[in-house]
């Protein structure tokens, strides 16, 4: 028995199983995960690692463990989407920490949420003066959502009755030198128009372009593979400054 080949085969099975299962579980940003989701992710990864390298266990039993855990997470996801009550029961609810500028100490104690944590999370939101806060809500994923008092909120064009242009999603027309015909059609343009625009900028072939996208104002942004920056800014700290002296 060649153990290396067994580990290779089992690792490939674990890798692709994990890939399939995580795709089934759907897209959830790491920052949006609750503590329970986070632990589930670690556990599923740990079982997959065991499937890959623990040759003293049958691969099927480890795989079944992985599938069961994924199935349980999926079932909880489905249940929590369907029932708001169960969702609240399992994931908890957002908690108001600051209400009308008043810190809710009792709620904080109940949640075992410390004042230091509150101040830190406010600072992360560039709030260094707690008196600027009208409402602060501790979300299920542990993040703090803050509503500043109206006098501390930035002015927006609507406040000044300034009319603004529509701003939507840009359409990618060339990606990695390949023209995306589908996107061209969606914005009611054709290849001739695109080639004309490229020629106007001295580009003879779309393959010279790394990225081209069209914004809702009709402006075409083009980035070519060949850049003409002669002295690019280097922020690297790989070299010891003392060496240069």
């Amino acid at each position: 028995m060649n153990e290396v080949s067994v580990v290779i085969v089992r690792s490939l099975m674990a890798f692709f199983t994990l890939l399939i299962f995580t795709r089934i579980l759907g897209k959830q940003e790491v920052s949006q995960l609750t503590f329970f989701d986070y632990i589930n992710g670690i556990t599923i990864g740990s079982i997959a690692a065991s499937l890959a390298t623990n040759l003293n266990g049958r691969s099927l039993t480890e795989w079944v463990g992985l599938a069961t855990w994924t199935g349980a997470v999926l079932a909880l996801q489905v249940i929590t989407v369907k029932s708001r009550y169960i969702s609240k029961y399992i994931n908890g609810e957002p908690i108001v920490i600051i209400m009308n500028g008043q810190i809710m100490e009792t709620t904080m104690n109940k949640m075992r949420y410390q004042m230091g944590e509150l101040l830190e999370q406010l600072r992360e939101k560039s709030i260094f003066d707690i008196s600027q806060v009208e409402f602060a809500v501790l979300e299920v994923n542990g993040k703090l959502s803050v509503l500043k008092k109206s006098s501390y909120q930035p002015v927006i064009p609507k406040d000044l009755n300034i009319s603004t242009d529509y701003d939507g999603l840009s359409a990618e027309l060339i990606y990695n030198g390949v023209v995306i015909e589908q996107n061209l059609k969606q914005v009611n343009l054709d290849r001739n128009w695109l080639e004309q625009q490229l020629r106007a900028k001295g580009i003879n072939d779309p393959s010279e372009v790394m990225l081209a996208h069209l914004n809702t104002k009709g402006e075409l942004y083009i980035d070519k593979y060949s850049d003409f920056v002669t002295d690019s800014a280097d922020f690297s700290e790989r070299y010891d400054p003392k060496e240069g002296q």
């Binding site: 028995m1 060649n2 153990e3 080949s5 067994v6 085969v9 089992r10 040759l55 003293n56 266990g57 049958r58 691969s59 099927l60």
Partner: peptide, 10 residues
Amino acid sequence: IQFGAEREEI
């Protein structure tokens, strides 16, 4: 059977 069986069994 090596890819599915327990190493200890073998």
